[in-house]
Nucleic acid binder design. Structure first.
Lengths: 219, 219
DNA sequence: GACCGGCTCCACCGCCGGTCGGAGGTCCGG
DNA sequence: CCGGACCTCCGACCGGCGGTGGAGCCGGTC
């Protein structure tokens, strides 16, 4: 039997979930709460396998409650929400949620989600999965190659790239086989276009805009 | 009915899948292939809703085949494999796979996976999900908080942090309420400890070592 | 007490970075 | 053909940066 609690401020939702997660499928609904703070207490008082947590609630919301439960070494939390924007997903994961399910999903998905999370796994609703995959892909070794900055000319992009790896004006001049005066001109134009005051600002700009990417050393 | 093809070089696996994905559940197995190249032909010749693709195969492997099918605007591909290391997952996603399922998963998960992918969705096996989530979290706004650099003193860490946001020595001095001479001393010590030659090098070092993190602007 | 590391400050100096005003070249499009 | 964008270069100026070589104060350790 999977011991679970439901935290949602709408009684109707709780009732519906209670029906879907029936004892016949191995679920044991041991407690209910209507706001986050109460949910945190439930998680502490009962030995639960999983908590179903709504996000939008009066008082302490589901994200905060999840953080509190995880911080207290509580049971895994399955976030159950109506809205599936990236930010709430990121918040949920950051708060330590083990799963993210949508209310619009079919009952069998929810059942599977609760089972997976209760047994220590993770769950992402299939409807949300594409975006998570996209993110994973972006973070995977084959990341976006640095692209040129539109508002800069080709030459200025070259100069900025060299600046971003720590080259001095003299070195840039040697690298590009032009005079240092030329480099200074380009550098000055770059500052104006990027609205920064010095090369330090330009480098920070480059990192913030993905033109330069951190290159963490082994270890 | 979901029209599907199975690409796997082991006949036994194909037979097992054919049993699990029975017509009773709405599946219509219209073709089978035993290597990647043949799978690509199948995808082109039959109007399929989904292709189940093994990775390890003689000749053209499942990743290449997936890339070929996606490149030709073919049906969505559900990768089905025994091994679940991060690299093959990343490869599969990069090749354009719509789903990633493990052979060790229960039959009902596979059924759901095929349904989800056939209807245009994405699927990640619950066993793989935790690592994908970890990656998503790492890429999400609330990343690991910057930690102090061990080899630097507390004060030097403060100075480096301010340098990394573009502050000049004078500004750092004002911020920390000390003399500019003091800041210069700290800055010099930082250079020596990080083995960089100037503040530009220090900033790049900070980004590479996670002390400073890119702060991409909206848009 | 002696020692050391960290934090604070000072003076001096050379150099690189950054700004300004100007100038010549190409190439492209109106 | 002329204007404009881009790339190239020059000289001069200045300020911040970085290096050197000091100094004193504090807290902890040996």
């Amino acid at each position: 039997m999977i011991r679970l609690a439901i935290v949602d401020d709408q009684a109707l939702i709780r009732a519906g979930l209670a029906r879907i997660l029936s004892p016949a499928d191995g679920f044991d609904l041991v407690a209910e709460a209507s706001d986050g703070a109460e949910g945190v207490r439930l998680a502490a008082d009962h030995a639960l396998d999983v908590v179903l947590m709504d996000i939008r609630m009066r008082g302490m919301d589901g994200i905060e409650a999840t953080r509190a439960i995880r911080g207290a070494d509580g049971p895994p939390v399955l976030i159950l929400t109506t809205f599936d924007d990236d930010e709430t997903l990121a918040d949920a994961i950051d708060a330590g949620a083990a799963g993210f399910a949508l209310k619009e999903s079919p009952a069998e998905d929810l059942i599977r989600a609760v089972q997976v999370v209760a047994s220590g796994g993770s769950w992402i609703d299939p409807l949300v999965t594409p975006r998570v995959l996209a993110s994973f892909r972006a973070a995977s070794p084959a990341a976006d190659p640095p692209t040129d900055v539109e508002e800069l000319t080709e030459r200025e992009n070259e100069v900025l790239r060299l600046m971003a790896v720590g080259a001095t004006n003299t070195e840039i001049a040697e690298d590009l086989d032009v005079g240092e005066a030329t480099v200074k001109t380009h550098v000055g134009n770059i500052f104006a276009k990027l609205a920064v005051r010095d090369r330090v600002g330009a480098i920070i700009w480059a990192y913030d805009h993905g033109l330069a990417q951190p290159d963490p050393p082994a270890g």
